[in-house]
Design a protein around this nucleic acid. Structure first.
Lengths: 222, 222
DNA sequence: CCATAAAAAACGGACGTTCATTTTTATTTA
DNA sequence: TAAATAAAAATGAACGTCCGTTTTTTATGG
């Protein structure tokens, strides 16, 4: 048999990784056997080793693929934000993060697997230097806001933006994976409003707040 | 050999659980074998089954013991808080949560094991209804604050307090377990200041803020 | 001596991985 | 176009190891 086309190989790897991911998420990495994966992917046990060197490498391949998907998604989310400190933008960020968490909850479970079984080796980059990343994207906006006097004294815009991002993230993770079931005592929508308000009021000076009133009212009316 | 005293049995269980916890945290639940535990605790393999019915029950016993330790700790932290919405109190809450996370980081790893391998069965109560819990403790303070007009329009004190608690929690967890290494671009101390400011400014009305100025200055001077 | 604790041995099964074998299929040949 | 070819892909049995648990044996001390 001549060599399979790259597309066919990619396709087969995809079906293997799909099955493996489903199993890893459902029962963890160590609890999932190569036999489980071979059954799930409808590929013989031995054949798995024509595509992957070890079981670990299947896990790593899944994560690598996922990391780029999530990264793209995050880029899109951030690209849609014009004025990062506007209440409306914060609220939108929260909604986007909520969708990101809910649509890819398996990914975050893999992150916990990585924390536990690989000391977060593959996911470190997720949070390492995230503030700098935001600063790189929105730096000029932050500086302009500061120059306009939009910010409260002694609050760093990039740090607060990171805090807001992390809070939205954590909120939905707790709801989705930790059985929070409305742990803030509010619906998702109300919680988003609440957090948006806190971060807007907490970051913006009174002057700028009145300027943003229209944006805030529109964003928090739901 | 006559029956061992309850104290001796408790002591032996403690050494077994200490060894098991260390192993679970280092390499996960499924990756840790009963033989590992027996070696770690210097107890023969068979003898483990004189103290625990199954491997799962060792895990559960560890969690049960830990949950009560953490719960006590949290009670102490909350008992030390007089005025929950004062900046100084929020800052102190953050510091306490930081210590709680850092001193018991193994516990939180067990939580992730629980999420992955037991669908968070044992830890659900950690976040479920947490806002109600805060409301039960600080309810009268929240009501009084609202009556005094301390709160911004449309922000629920208990929800915001939960948000602050969760944010502090998440901050230190990311730093400790996810390789965040100053992911907010600040030292722990600066990050605590930043978050305290955001939650104080974000929650309190301008009037009450000026009243709290002394408290805030004292809390955020470091 | 006896009840109990502790240790050791044994059990059946599942694990990740390897490998000899069979099947498949793109290409070459007729 | 159809048969032949050969190299790659797919297979599943087999390997040695380790698993959680059970059973048996030995040690202990009142």
């Amino acid at each position: 048999m001549p060599k399979l086309s790259a597309a066919v190989i990619r396709g087969k790897k995809d079906t293997i990784e799909d099955a493996a991911r489903e199993l890893f998420i459902k029962q963890g990495f160590h609890a999932t056997s190569m036999r489980d994966i071979s059954k799930g992917a409808d590929v013989s046990l031995g054949n798995l080793y024509n595509y992957y060197v070890t079981k670990d490498s299947i896990f790593e391949s899944i994560i690598d693929g996922y990391l780029s998907v999530i990264d793209d998604r995050l880029k899109t989310i951030l690209a849609e934000i014009d004025e990062p400190l506007e209440p409306a933008s914060l609220r939108k960020l929260g909604e986007s993060v909520g969708r990101l968490v809910n649509e890819h909850s398996d990914f975050w479970l893999l992150m916990y697997i990585d924390v536990l079984e690989f000391q977060n080796r593959h996911f470190r980059k997720m949070f390492d230097g995230i503030t700098d990343r935001f600063r790189k994207i929105f730096g000029h906006k932050f500086i302009a806001a500061e120059a306009r006097g939009d910010l409260r004294l002694g609050v760093d815009a990039a740090s607060v933006f990171t805090a807001a991002y992390m809070q939205f993230f954590n909120y939905f993770l707790v709801e989705k994976l930790f059985g929070g079931n409305q742990h803030m005592g509010l619906t998702d929508d109300q919680a988003l409003n609440c957090l948006t308000k806190v971060f807007a009021y907490g970051t913006l000076s009174e002057d700028s707040l009145s300027r943003f009133k229209r944006s805030a009212n529109k964003a928090l009316s739901s």
